[in-house]
Amino acid sequence: MRIALLYVLFCAVAIGVNIGSQALTLQLWPSGIWWSIIVGTATGLVVKYVLDKRFIFRFSPQNVKHDGTTFVLYTLMGVATTAIFWGFEYGAWLIFETASARYLGGVAGLVIGYLAKYHLDKMFVFRVTPSAP
């Protein structure tokens, strides 16, 4: 139960970072909707990786290269889930044409995507291989 609560908390933190980064990007570049989505995705990804690695999966990389390889795999697992997030966010924007709807669509897409991502990360990124006897 503790892991589930922490995961939900970290999702909320990453969502806040993502949406906040998007809002800041759009303040600086009002016509840059795609850039805001990319910036939000990148900042949310890094924050979520650090939190998941440390507190959810208790993963300690062997070295910087191992950490980098793990981050790449973590990112690849997020490609499909990012498509879900972007689809919901951009779909809400196309349908309602308001920033509020776009952000709400983004949050909905992130929640669905994070649920799928947890299972992918558990199976493929942070799996623990048994040590030899």
Results as ranks from 00 to 15, higher is better:
T70P: 12
V128W: 11
K122E: 14
A132C: 11
W93G: 00
F57D: 09
G32S: 06
F55Y: 09
D67T: 13
G87S: 05
A12V: 12
V111M: 11
A92H: 02
G32T: 00
W34Q: 03
I38D: 00
L24R: 07
V39A: 15
F10G: 06
Y49E: 11
D52C: 07
A23V: 08
A92G: 01
T81Y: 01
P30W: 06
M77C: 15
L120N: 13
A12E: 09
W35A: 02
T129W: 11
N18D: 14
D52M: 01
V125Y: 10
I112Q: 11
Y7M: 04
V111E: 12
I56H: 04
P130E: 14
F57L: 08
H119C: 12
G78E: 05
S60K: 13
A23P: 00
V79P: 13
I56F: 01
T41K: 00
H119Q: 14
L9R: 04
L51M: 12
G20Q: 09
I84L: 07
F55H: 05
T43L: 05
A42N: 00
G44P: 02
A92M: 06
G44E: 09
F88N: 00
W93E: 01
Y114R: 15
A101N: 02
W86D: 01
I95K: 02
T81I: 07
P133T: 04
L120F: 15
L120Q: 12
Y74K: 01
T82L: 08
Y103N: 06
A23T: 02
A132R: 07
T75V: 13
F88R: 00
L110F: 07
E89W: 13
L5Q: 03
A116Q: 15
S31F: 12
P61F: 01
V17W: 13
V64F: 05
Y90A: 04
S36E: 05
S31T: 03
F126E: 14
S36K: 07
L51V: 10
E89M: 12
L73W: 02
G105P: 07
K53C: 05
K65W: 15
V107W: 04
H66C: 15
T82Y: 03
M77Y: 05
L5C: 02
Y114W: 15
L51T: 10
V50I: 14
V79Y: 08
A42G: 01
G16M: 10
P133A: 11
G105S: 07
A108N: 03
M123H: 15
A132S: 13
T75C: 11
V128P: 10
K53W: 00
W29P: 00
W86M: 01
L51I: 09
F126P: 15
T25F: 14
F71I: 15
R102Y: 03
E89S: 14
G106D: 05
A23C: 08
W29H: 04
I38E: 01
T75E: 03
V125M: 06
C11A: 10
G91E: 01
H66F: 08
I37A: 08
L45M: 05
R54G: 04
T81A: 04
F57T: 10
R54A: 09
R58M: 10
A4S: 07
I112Y: 10
